[in-house]
Design a protein around this nucleic acid. Sequence first.
RNA 1: GGUGGCGUGUCCGAGCGGCCGAAGGAGCACGCCUCGAAAGCGUGUGAGGGUGCAAGCUCUCCGUGGGUUCAAAUCCCACCGCCACCGCCA
Length: 425
Amino acid sequence: MIDPRLVREAPDLIRASQRARGLDESTVDAVVEADERRRATIARYDALRNEQKSLGKGVATAAGEERASLLARTKALSTEVKTAEAEQVAAADRARELLLSVPNIVADGVPPGAEENYVVLEHVGAPRDFAAEGFVPLDHLALGGLHKAIDTERGAKVSGSRFYYLTGIGARLELALVNLAMAHAAEGGFTPMIPPALVKPRAMEGTGFLGQAAQDVYRVESDDLYLVGTSEVPLAAYHSDEILDVADLPLRYAAFSPCYRREAGSYGRDTHGIWRVHWFDKVEMFVFTRPEDAAAEHERLLEREKDFLGLLELPYRVIDTAAGDLGLSAARKYDIEAWIPSREGYGELTSTSNCTDFQARRLGTRMRTGDGTAAVATLNGTLCSMARFIVAVLENHQQSDGSVRVPAALQPYLGGLDVLKPERG
RNA sequence: GGUGGCGUGUCCGAGCGGCCGAAGGAGCACGCCUCGAAAGCGUGUGAGGGUGCAAGCUCUCCGUGGGUUCAAAUCCCACCGCCACCGCCA
């Protein structure tokens, strides 16, 4: 939720943000109008309630005729107060509902417009020239078969399309990546966390996943719970309804959890292999900090992600996502896309968003400052999403004989293994 | 799943239906004292909204949602959560 004060004090700022995202500016007018109505009903209710309270106190001491007439008046007031309260609540609900529908204010410098308007900030490393090396690279599914590491057929048999089993070295590879990622996070001052992957509606709502993104979320109807699509959800909600001491900020967490996504509306897209799946595991970073430090913290998260791809010796590019492609909560988002040989292009491996105080306001996460309280800023960033990193590692480090070179940083987590050799038979 | 108990401010802990946003204590902040500190003494110390240049005035919040009443932290109902014991499962 954006700062309600903006509605009165800077509606043009909201309009500009809507425009950058390619959204309707007229919703701002509706929000302003609802806010005016809300305030008017509050004034009316307050006045009536004040009269009721002050007269009510007189009832206790009054006697005889005076008491009778007081009672008559207060009885009438009682009804009026109830009506006014109902109106006030309705107006407040309406105003809040509209306010909640407004996405976060786009940060300065974000490229405006739709998805394709992203800006490439930098390229790191160069894609391998397999032609020059004299062989045609295999895709990750072929490599996964060769190494008996990925089994999508049985995944489909047991759970349906877009499910898979990681087997043997595939499973070991995931565990190694998890441990490397967690170590890399701890080194950066992030507290390791293992959060619940099933959350209440409040947590889902507060993080902004029940709006446009609702169709992508698995819901467990029998218990009114949701399967999270990212541990950003349980991490963001971790400090909900809490007032944090500003001296404790920033709070940095790194969580390992499964992620579940319905992928509604992506039928037929990326159906090959485990690039786009309904479930994967992920190590995610999350930060609570002061709003004035959020932009700098965002750069830190990006650096940590870049370093991690560096450890895995993957060639990649960094993009500054266009306003129209930002989620509800994000003011700015950087994606890291690694070169994926089988796609003959770059594919998204990580994403880091600065949500400023947008999520925190919904979740009731505040900080105590010298003079009062204020919503904190929240940021999130992928450190390692297992399925896609496995794809990237297998494809980028494959050799002409089908073996796969293990990056030095990963070797200690695979018992010193430096090359994955195809299984025989 | 069953039975019983409990849910109050940062924490502990009081609270006859009106004078309770709420006693008392702890903690914290500031001041006094001290060479400095501790102790001691004094003062202050919840959040959110409306209105106002401001001082201020005012409304809401005592797990959540309903109800009774002129008036509810206080009475009634439902739900949620916590604790204990029993059952069940690991």
